[in-house]
Structures are given as structure tokens and as C-alpha cells.
Design a protein around this nucleic acid. Structure first.
Length: 867
RNA sequence: GCGGACGUGGUGGAAUUGGUAUACACAACAGACUUAAAAUCUGUCGAGCGUAAGCUCAUGCGGGUUCAAGUCCCGCCGUCCGCACCA
């Protein structure tokens, strides 16, 4: 029999699938629907093997569900707007549109080569005006409904390039291109009111609507939303101390007569307060900075950290003391006020009271500035006489002490009592606070969906009339310098106001690309219609039954998509409020990085590794082997699936990506691994070849009955049962191990007759089909089967063949395995115990000892406890 | 810094979720076939002691709970993901 030739077989079957329209989805037919979706790719240039892993997983599910009798939708598109296209334009002069669409052409070809069961008729790119026109319609609806608004917020400003930088473009507080120290600058920008939905987004995490999501993702989202109940309260300015001189040296500045409003989740620790801290961009800080150059320098230093929370939190805790003091609400202490770099203006009120004994950051701060550290919460079982705070704050619950009227109360009671007291004093009230902030969607860039708004001096901000949509990007733009090409475009932004007809200007900001990816899944239901979403089609297909993507999207993309879905529902486009019924987060494909002496990153294929040392393939110069990292274009640690497909075929690449490593874990690409996959393909082919034409000759009406037949049939049916279970539960690596096991049995089942063999081989090709679809078709044809495997039903395991009459149990003595016994599967505990106690290997360990207890776990184990 | 994960042979990993640790594969070694190589097939393969039967030790480190811990609890160490303008 000839060797399997993927180079011939793979294109052949891809063409037949296409001719048969095997993967074109429609809403007809009585089958239940199943919508499989992998997070669509950014067209960065070429597919790498990490994409293959992602899409191979989705393809296994899609093909399996189709075989299992579902009407499957498995579409593909392109998350095509974004910064890299604009960076490429600046570097190489190619237009973002040309760069993007040519990448899409390449990547589409690569994906098709992988033989994925995708309905390509639904393909679109988010940069198609046909797509983004509908995004603009959705936005206008949201705006009308009050979901969108404008407010000021901070951006990273590069003062040399005069442009807004993304967080990833800020490296150690410097602009990546100019090297200039980044400043924070306020801009008026568009926001979506995601905080209005915070409660429902939170509730759905726990009320069963997202039961098909992994716990860790739900936990991350819960923490991200961060609802906390706390107390918002005023700290009043303390009375002047030198009133006798006639000058009040602690008078509130104009506008701050009410004092400072803080937010706290731990009002029980108020007696432990030793200072007040406000954010560097708090209005009061801004006020004092006007007349205090030292403070001004401090604040501008804080602003040079960039806008990322990570940078702010990692920075050393520092502060500047203001020349004011606040009154403690419960006693006569005067609390100093600091402007502190670790207080965030975005969270709460931008001000806190510091309780060093109960908060690590406050403690670090207090030690640095020599502030008092009164302990107020006594941990359970601690002695109030000796309890002190050393290097670590005590943040847990306990009993209040040193706390006036709160003394002796539990943390919980003290929170309630302190809140009640503050409310009674008229200084504040209990409030619910969220960590979640509204979603800023304005970007000062060209390569994004234009925001359909017009700024008119007379009418304010006006929506672009529906009839004028789409607001298309200008075909030509100037990318020779940083900054927003739309803003400096000679003509594009100049329009007449749709309301008054006066000269006006277009909004030159474009949407955050998270907007593009927040509704594409709904667009796939009816991608060619002239409205954003066709309700009937969306009602049929939504929600996505299985969504698959990287855990790096666990918070932002998934949260935004959930919120967007709610907005779309509110505007009548959808009937669901959760877009993704089941979520699977897969691991990344990682690879060592290679960097030569000149600092140039090298592709793995350009590096030769011998005896642990690496050198360049072209000139033999030494190469440093860097850490194993996520495959990325920038570090060139990518492996091209095309080369693999050329040598071994797409099936081998798919197989290897799913074998061995559990799908949720990262996997390191190795050349040895793909060779192993190639061997497997040949083993399957060998096994099938031995039964070529068998389906044409065997009499399928006469089931086999010999012992050899029965044992092969048992293996066949337990393979069906096990594999089905593994695929349903995303255990692809185990599913693959079962195929190996099944092959091993098949190889040694020489005594089995043609009937059992035919059943085994037909089953083998079907079980392998989701993983190696081309090979499965070729096998089926060789066996003499009719029709396409991709349309064939999934086999069903016969329960009668899964039952075992005898089982082997391990026997432990004092928890150590000493022997094993074979017993009837339905043996009762007494019989199992008797068999265990009389087993020779066990007796040796229990003779002469007293049996204290015998634990029999039916079907599992026997443990004999002796002394 | 905060939040979420992960850590098992030389390697990727399995362990029915508290019940026979190392399934399946890769690599390595030995053998068969071959003029030879590749491919393929067969066998060995956690460590230590032992001729063997077997015994002891091993799931990042240190404690704990339990008849029984890779799995649960506490404390460390290391790696990865996210932190709101990368996608």
C-alpha cells in the first residue's frame, strides 16, 4: 500500500468539502443549532502555529458537533483595525488599508490550508466600511439611549512626537519612539457607561447565566468590577490653632469648605487613622500646587509615571505634606494631609484616610514619614497587652480596641456602628463603590472606525444623520509623522453642521478596537444584511455556544462584549444579554527566543542548536537562547504552519498542537513533536490500509461473537465512549492518547474477524476525523465507505460492551500499596475484604499484627489498617 | 504592588476529582530487518539498594488534616497571564 501523501490528499478533500458546501451554515432544518467561535485574529502578517492551535480546537468542536447532529455555525473574520497597521505605515510607507488587506489575503490562504471547517461565506473584516457603517449605527443608537457620553480623561502624551501613546508604547515612563518623558494630559473623550451595568454584569457571573465559564475568568471579572460597600465621608478642616493672633492658619480654601471627602470600606478602623491622603490630580492638590513649586514638581513627577495602574502601584510610596490639618470625626486629633502617589483619582473619591495598622500601603507610608501607627483591630486570640504592628499590617477581621465607642465590637459590627455614627453626625453615608470605570472608546488614530459625530460651535456635538453613514475614512492620509492623520487631514474633517448648516468639524477620534470586537459575533449571524444585526438570524444563532480564546482576554474583551450585548439588547437588536454561553480559555504556544550579538532577533528556522549552544545558520555566529515566551512577531520566535504543512501536512500540525499538552496550558513548540504526529498519521494509515475495501466485502448484518471479536469490540466501544467524553470536556490531549491506545489494541487484535475489524476501522477514522479530517476522508475512501466523513454521524458506544465483569483492586496496608486482587465487578464489601486479607502479598504485611480497620472503597481500593 | 493561574520521570503530560502516582507519547538505549542509512517493527526505560522476590525514597520547598494527599488546609519559592490606549 502506498504511503499517505498529505500534499495530494489535503487539497483534494478541501476542494470536495467546498464543492459539497459542507460547512455553509443556514438556519433551516430541524437540528438544534450550535455556534462555535474562536476569537478572531488580528491580521498581523502571517498565521503562526499558535493560531493553528486555537483554530484546531474550535475545529474539533465544530466537526464533532456536526457529526453529533447539530446545525453548526463556525465563521471566521478579521479584527482588522489597530495600531500595527499605522506603525507599518510610518515605517514602510505602505497604507494601513493595503497592509491590512494583503495580510488578510495571506492569512486566509494559510487558514484554508489547515482544512478548517469554516463557513467562509460569512467572512468579513472590521475595517470593511460594510462592517463599520453598522458599528456607527449602533453607536448612534447607544448615544440616543444615553449609553454614550463625553468627559475628560488622562492620556499618555509624548511631548516630542506630539502624540498620544498607548500604555505599551510607554517604556519606563518614556515614549518608545522619541524617548521623551511622557506626560499625563487631559482630553475630552467618548465613554460608554459600563458602570451602569456593573450590577448586572456582576450578577450574571453568579446566577447561572455564565455557568459555562471557567471559575477563574468569572473570579477575575468579579474582582475587576470590584463592587464594595463602604462609607463616603467628609473630613472637616480642623479648627485654627493660632486664632489668638487673629489669623486662621488652617482655613479651607474657597470651594473646599466642606473638607475632604474620602471613601473607605473599613470605617471600623477610623480610630486607627493617622493621616489623610489625596491623589496627585485631586482638585485640592491642584489648588495648593498653584502656590507651591515643590508640590508642583512632586505632582508632575507623579504624572510622569504614565496612566497605567501597574506603573503607579509599583512605584515607591511617596507623598508631600500639605499645610493643612483635618479633624478626626470621633476625637480631637488633627490629621495631616498628604498628596500621595498611590492614591488613584479614578477610584472612590480620590482621597483616603490612612490607617497604617490595617493597610500595608498605609503602613509603608507611615513608616516612611514617621506617622503614628495605632493598632485598632485585635486578631482573634491575640493579647491586647502585647499585640503590636511590626512589618506587616493586620488586614483581617478581629475585635476592635483603642477605638472609643467601638471597643469590643467585631469588625463587622464596628463597620455598621461607625457608619451609623458618621451618618448621624451628617458627615457621610454608606455607599456602594465600583472599581470598574466607564469605558473610554476614543482613540486619536487613523486606522479605526470613525466616530460619527460633528462638532459645531453653535449646536455643540451633533450626531451624523443616518443618511450620511458611513463616515468613511479618507482614502489618503499623511503617515509621515506621528499624531492623528485624521486631525491634520486637509479636507476630511471639514463639514457643514447637519442641524444649522454652519461650518463644523468632524470628530477626528476613532473607536477603540475593542468596540469592533464587541459585536462581531452577532454580525456573523447575518453578515451581509443592510442593518447591523438581523434579529431573526441572531435570535436563531445567539448566544455563541462555544467561545474559544486566550486567557489574556479574560477581562477586557469579554467584559466589553458582555456590556455591548446588553446595549444591543436594550436597542432591540438582540434577545440575549450574555453573548457567550460557554467559554474555553486556551494556553499559548511558546518558543525560545533567539537573539544574536548584534541584538537582532532570529527566527527559529535560522538558528542551529548543537549541544545546548546556538549559532546562526547563515554565518555561524553565536546566538543567545532567550527565555521561552509567547510567540510574537516582534521577537520572531514564531513557527510557520506552512512549512510544517509542506513537510508533514496540515493534519500533522493540527494533531501535534492538540496532543500532549492540556489545551488550557501553554505548549512549547518542538520539532520532535510534529515528527511524532507524522508517525501517528502513518500508523493510522497503515492500520486502515490493512483493511482496504473491507466495507465492500464484509457482511454487516452478522455481528462477530468470538472472544477475540468481543475484546476488539470492547476496545472499539470504550474508545468511542472515552473520546466522546474527552472532546465534550475539552480534553483533546487525552482524546488523542485514547486513539493511540485504540491503535495499540487494534495492532495486536490479529485474531479478530473481519466484522469486528471493519467496525474498529470505521470507528477509528471517525474518531480521528475531528483532529485529522483529511486523513479520515482518505481512510474512509480506502475502506470503501460512501459519502464524506465530514457529513457522517458520530458513532455511539454500546453500553453492553463497556461493562466489565471483573476488576482489579489495589490493596494497601497502612496506606502503602502492597498487592492487588481481582474480584467480580459486583462483589460486595465483605467478599472484597476477605479476598484482600487472604492475598499472599498482603498476608506478609499483616501477619502477627492487629487489624484495626479495613477500609473498602467499592471499585477503587482496599486499605487495611494494622498496628 | 494588586487580581488570576500553574509547578509530577531526561521531555510533553495522565491520575475517573481524596482511593493502585508516572496512562499515552517524545527522547534515549538494546535488538530485528537492510550491503548501509532512513523508515518500520520488538524490547527496556522515575531514583536508590538487591541475583531475585522485594524494600526504601520520589509529584517545586516546609508544615498540617486523613485509614489514605499530586489532589484538601497553612506558610514559602519559582514561572506565566491581566492591570483599563497591544490585540
Amino acid at each position: 500500500m502506498s504511503r499517505y501523501n498529505p500534499k495530494e490528499a489535503e487539497p483534494k478533500w478541501q476542494a470536495r468539502w467546498e464543492a459539497a458546501g459542507a460547512f455553509t451554515a443556514d438556519t433551516g432544518g430541524g437540528k438544534p443549532k450550535y455556534y462555535v467561535l474562536e476569537m478572531f485574529p488580528y491580521p498581523s502578517g502571517r498565521i503562526h502555529i499558535g493560531h493553528v492551535r486555537n483554530y484546531a480546537m474550535g475545529d474539533v468542536i465544530a466537526r464533532y458537533k456536526k457529526a453529533a447532529g447539530f446545525n453548526v455555525l463556525h465563521p471566521m473574520g478579521w479584527d482588522a483595525f489597530g495600531m500595527p497597521a499605522e506603525n507599518a505605515a510610518m515605517q514602510t510607507g505602505s497604507h494601513p488599508r493595503d497592509w491590512t488587506y494583503s495580510n488578510i489575503d495571506i492569512m486566509r490562504g494559510q487558514l484554508k490550508q489547515m482544512g478548517l471547517s469554516i463557513d467562509w461565506s460569512r467572512e468579513f473584516a472590521t475595517c470593511d466600511p460594510d462592517y463599520y457603517v453598522h458599528q456607527q449605527r449602533l453607536f448612534l443608537d447607544f448615544w440616543k439611549q444615553g449609553f454614550a457620553y463625553r468627559k475628560e480623561s488622562s492620556v499618555n502624551w509624548d511631548p516630542v512626537d506630539n502624540t498620544v501613546l498607548a500604555n505599551e508604547q510607554v517604556i519606563d515612563g518614556k515614549g518608545w519612539r522619541s524617548g521623551a518623558t511622557v506626560e499625563r494630559r487631559k482630553l475630552s473623550q467618548w465613554f460608554f457607561k459600563i458602570t451602569d451595568a456593573a450590577d448586572d454584569l456582576l450578577a450574571a457571573l453568579d446566577d447561572g447565566r455564565l455557568a459555562g465559564w471557567p471559575d477563574n475568568v468569572r473570579t477575575m471579572q468579579r474582582n475587576w468590577i470590584g463592587r464594595s460597600n463602604g462609607l463616603a465621608m467628609q473630613f472637616r478642616f480642623a479648627a485654627a490653632t493660632n486664632a489668638e493672633e487673629g489669623a486662621d492658619n488652617n482655613a479651607p480654601p474657597p470651594g473646599f469648605e466642606d473638607g475632604i471627602e474620602i471613601f473607605t470600606t473599613r470605617p471600623d478602623t477610623l480610630f486607627g487613622a493617622s493621616f489623610i491622603a489625596i491623589a496627585p490630580d485631586h482638585p485640592l492638590a491642584t489648588h495648593f500646587a498653584q502656590s507651591d513649586s515643590d508640590l508642583r514638581d512632586f505632582i508632575s513627577g507623579c504624572q510622569k509615571l504614565g496612566t497605567s495602574e501597574e506603573a503607579i502601584e509599583k512605584a515607591e510610596k511617596r507623598g508631600r505634606k500639605l499645610n493643612i490639618e483635618m479633624a478626626h470625626p470621633f476625637d480631637d486629633r488633627r490629621l495631616p494631609v498628604y498628596v500621595a502617589n498611590f492614591v488613584l483619582m479614578q477610584y472612590g473619591t480620590g482621597a483616603i484616610f490612612g490607617c497604617p495598622s490595617g493597610d500595608q500601603r498605609d503602613l509603608d507610608f507611615a513608616r516612611k514619614y514617621g506617622l503614628a501607627i495605632p493598632p485598632v483591630v485585635l486578631p482573634p486570640e491575640a493579647d491586647p497587652a502585647t499585640f503590636t504592628i511590626e512589618a506587616e499590617a493586620y488586614t483581617g477581621p478581629g475585635t476592635l480596641f483603642n477605638s472609643g465607642f467601638l471597643d469590643g465590637m467585631t469588625t463587622e459590627d464596628a463597620i455598621a456602628a461607625a457608619t451609623a455614627k458618621i451618618e448621624e453626625m451628617g458627615l457621610g453615608k454608606g455607599v456602594t463603590q465600583y472599581r470598574l470605570r466607564d469605558w473610554g472608546v476614543s482613540r486619536q488614530r487613523y486606522w479605526g472606525c470613525p466616530i460619527p459625530a460633528i462638532h459645531c460651535d453653535k449646536c455643540g456635538i451633533v450626531a451624523v444623520p443616518e443618511a450620511d453613514l458611513p463616515v468613511k475614512l479618507p482614502a489618503e492620509a499623511d503617515f509621515s509623522e506621528p499624531g492623528n492623520p485624521l486631525d491634520r487631514h486637509p479636507t476630511w474633517k471639514h463639514v457643514d453642521c447637519p442641524e444649522c448648516g454652519a461650518k463644523a468639524q468632524r470628530e477626528t477620534d476613532t473607536f477603540d478596537t475593542f468596540v469592533d470586537s464587541s459585536w462581531y459575533f452577532a454580525r456573523f449571524a447575518a453578515p451581509n444584511r443592510d442593518k447591523p444585526i438581523e434579529k431573526a438570524a441572531a435570535d436563531y444563532w445567539m448566544p455563541v455556544d462555544q467561545y474559544i480564546g486566550g486567557v489574556e482576554h479574560a477581562i477586557l474583551h469579554l467584559l466589553y462584549a458582555r456590556y455591548f450585548t446588553r446595549m444591543m439588547k436594550a436597542c432591540g437588536y438582540l434577545s440575549v444579554d450574555e453573548p457567550f454561553a460557554n467559554l474555553f480559555t486556551q494556553g499559548m504556544v511558546v518558543h525560545a527566543t533567539f537573539c544574536d550579538e548584534a541584538g537582532e532577533w532570529l527566527l527559529p528556522e535560522d538558528v542551529i542548536i548543537e549541544k545546548g549552544a546556538a549559532r546562526r545558520a547563515d554565518n555561524g555566529k553565536p546566538v543567545a537562547i532567550g527565555p521561552i515566551e509567547k510567540m510574537s512577531k516582534s521577537k520572531k520566535n514564531v513557527v510557520s504552519p506552512e512549512a510544517i504543512a509542506e513537510t508533514y501536512g496540515a493534519d500533522a500540525a493540527r494533531w501535534f498542537m492538540l496532543s500532549d499538552s492540556p489545551p488550557e496550558r501553554d505548549v512549547e513548540w518542538t520539532d520532535a513533536g510534529v515528527e511524532g504526529a507524522w508517525k501517528l498519521i502513518n500508523r493510522i494509515w497503515e492500520a486502515i490500509s490493512s483493511g482496504a475495501g473491507i466495507l465492500k466485502t464484509v457482511d454487516l448484518s452478522k455481528p462477530a461473537a468470538s472472544d477475540a471479536d468481543k475484546s476488539l469490540r470492547q476496545a472499539t466501544h470504550s474508545a468511542i465512549a472515552g473520546l466522546t467524553d474527552d472532546i465534550e470536556n475539552f480534553r483533546f490531549n487525552k482524546a488523542i492518547a485514547r486513539i493511540y491506545e485504540f491503535l495499540n489494541v487494534l495492532k495486536s487484535a490479529a485474531g479478530a474477524g473481519a466484522w469486528a475489524k471493519a467496525e474498529a476501522l470505521a470507528t477509528l477514522k471517525q474518531l480521528a476525523a475531528p483532529f485529522t479530517p483529511h486523513l479520515a476522508e482518505e481512510c474512509w475512501e480506502t475502506l470503501g465507505g460512501d459519502g464524506l466523513v465530514c457529513n457522517a454521524p458520530w458513532p455511539k458506544a454500546d453500553p453492553a460492551l463497556l461493562a466489565r465483569d471483573k476488576i482489579v483492586l489495589g490493596v494497601q496496608v497502612n496506606g502503602k500499596r502492597r498487592s492487588e486482587i481481582e474480584v467480580a465487578a459486583d462483589a460486595d464489601n465483605a467478599a472484597v475484604e476477605k479476598a484482600a486479607l487472604s492475598e499472599a502479598g498482603v498476608k506478609r504485611h499483616i501477619d502477627g499484627k492487629t487489624i484495626r480497620k479495613v477500609v473498602v472503597v467499592p471499585g477503587r481500593i482496599v486499605n487495611i489498617v494494622v498496628s
